[in-house]
Design a protein around this nucleic acid. Sequence first.
DNA 1: GCCTTTTTTTGAATGATTCAAATGAAAGTC
DNA 2: GACTTTCATTTGAATCATTCAAAAAAAGGC
Lengths: 151, 151
Amino acid sequence: MTLTDATDLLRGAGLRVTEPRRAVIEALGGLPHASADAIHAKVAQALPDVSLQTVYNVLRDLTGSGLTRAIEPGDHPVRYELRVGDNHHHLVCTRCGAIVDVDCVVGHAPCLTPSESHGFVLDEAEVTFWGLCLECQAAVTTASDPVPAHP
Amino acid sequence: MTLTDATDLLRGAGLRVTEPRRAVIEALGGLPHASADAIHAKVAQALPDVSLQTVYNVLRDLTGSGLTRAIEPGDHPVRYELRVGDNHHHLVCTRCGAIVDVDCVVGHAPCLTPSESHGFVLDEAEVTFWGLCLECQAAVTTASDPVPAHP
DNA sequence: GCCTTTTTTTGAATGATTCAAATGAAAGTC
DNA sequence: GACTTTCATTTGAATCATTCAAAAAAAGGC
């Protein structure tokens, strides 16, 4: 994810090109499935004055334009990912909130359609596999361990 | 959902039988996909002294025992449903949070398995169809309407 | 009925996310 | 390149679903 890529993405979406926005996009390039807080920390390495509020604003705008996608891992903070060539799903750890991509089971979009739409106008089918990641499996068998941070 | 049913469910799960717990189960019988707040309101009709905190406690216990299931409709409050014969999915309105059941696309559990588990021990595959319900379609076309309450 | 364990209550705290007003920067125009 | 308008960012505070904690009350086994 180079500077030019981020700029082009923003231009293509009709969004103004600003340093914080480019920085957030670049951060997501290196941190797939990052929370607003994690993105803020990453962005702060290059731009220490960018506020967490700005990161929230940027993520709202990027998501509204379809450049990023929000993932809600249960009761953990929302995670964001660059919406690259779609059609993948997520493995989510119910304990620590870690997220891993998995290829689409079917292989083409839309990979699923409901048997009845009940009048809904649908725009996405989301498949989430809930489970326990390797780290948390180990932690659960051991006596009560703290929940690990997820990178 | 009769009193006896609720009692049996609790006994079967090894949970103590209390008025608030029976009331929550009965409320869920009449209100599928209800939020803690909505359940509290329903329960209060019969038992006005049951606190919202108690409803949260009960829902935590019921969900922990597998009697109910939590659904997280994006940025809306968590909804709960009685876990009846499984294998159905959800249509969720991104605007108002309304939830409708849809039959499983595949028809038998587990209806999906990921192509790779990445070491995760999985316990559930969740399929969510995101869209706009009938009411919200109408509201969006009309000039900015308030978000409707969902029953 | 008594005793222990589990629930409920009450009241306050938490924390991710959002709102609002004021300042600052981007992009189009002359 | 400066001007103007529009949009983004900052700062600080507010929201609200959900959880924590301590004390009082009820459930179930003996």
